[in-house]
Amino acid sequence: MKGRGRLIVFLFGGVALLVAILFARSLIRLKNTTYEQVTGKRMRILAYSSFMGSTGPGLQLVEDFKKQCQCSVEVSNAGDAGLLVERLLLSRKDQFDLVIGLDQFALADAEKKVHWRKINLDDVAFAPEVKSHVSANFVPYDWAPMTFIYRKDEIEPPKALGDLLSEDYRSKIAIQDPRSSTPGFEFFQWVMAVKKQNAAEFFEALKPNIQSISPSWSFSYGLFKKGLSKLVFSYVTSLVYHWEVESDHRYQAAEFIDGHPYQVEFAGIPESCTECELAQHFLKNMMSVSGQKLIASKNFMFPAVAAVEVSSTYSQLPKLKLIETPVDKDLSVWAKVFRK
């Protein structure tokens, strides 16, 4: 065969092979969706990527639900949790039956821009920390206070936000950028809530102590785990992973007298849903004792339902004083300090 022939065979053959593999796998998947063939029901969920990731609770929840409902469940990815509402707005109106992963910052936008269906979960006894966040349209399904995590053999922990300015923490603190990360936004709003009009001065004075500002929580936590930073802004429940999975009790959470911000994650059913009952049923499963245990243990967060005991490690975590932080998205103070 001449060069030209070989090229054509290679180009067409390669693409044909890839298409054939994709086609065959689609057929196998279609064949496996027996539930849809039986009942004709198909629920579509929109969630952020790590909820449905290999270590998240989503896959297990979906598999369990499929067995119960005899329906098929399709999950779409919104990538970053901060872009869930945008993803929903950009989709076809009836595309999703359930949205999972909104945080309190996205909630205002979600409420304003999308119509939501009322959720009936009267029989759920919510944990006191999230009770104030329960609304007719959104269900909180997990939560966790945020603080600085440290290793006890490396530094003395700060006890107040003001302590973070100490020279002892020079180039040791890892935080996240509020422009691209929800924990970063929590930290920013925490400082705004505590320092109020002095927030800009605080950020300015904090600069020399910042080891890194990462685009995401995972990035900054990676730097901390590798010992490159000594304090990282994270969830108090991060300790569960270190204590339970790694059996490493050097990891501790700093307790601040100023109080701590906390993150709550919500789910909601868009008004445009087509399998609304299934979505409601799925939510009920999420809020059941087994669902809550699964979510809390996989996400390393606290369950949103009272009296759900995930493991003894959760009860050993420090009980942090919580404060409410603003949820508006005004980052002008950050821009003023950090874009100089």
């Binding site: 990731g53 270590t55 998240g56 929580w217 936590y221 990676g222 785990k225 991060s238 270190h242 999975v245």
Partner: peptide, 9 residues
């Protein structure tokens, strides 16, 4: 990426 997002660096 999902492992990094769940502490398993």
């Amino acid at each position: 990426e999902s492992l990094i997002n769940s502490y398993r660096l």
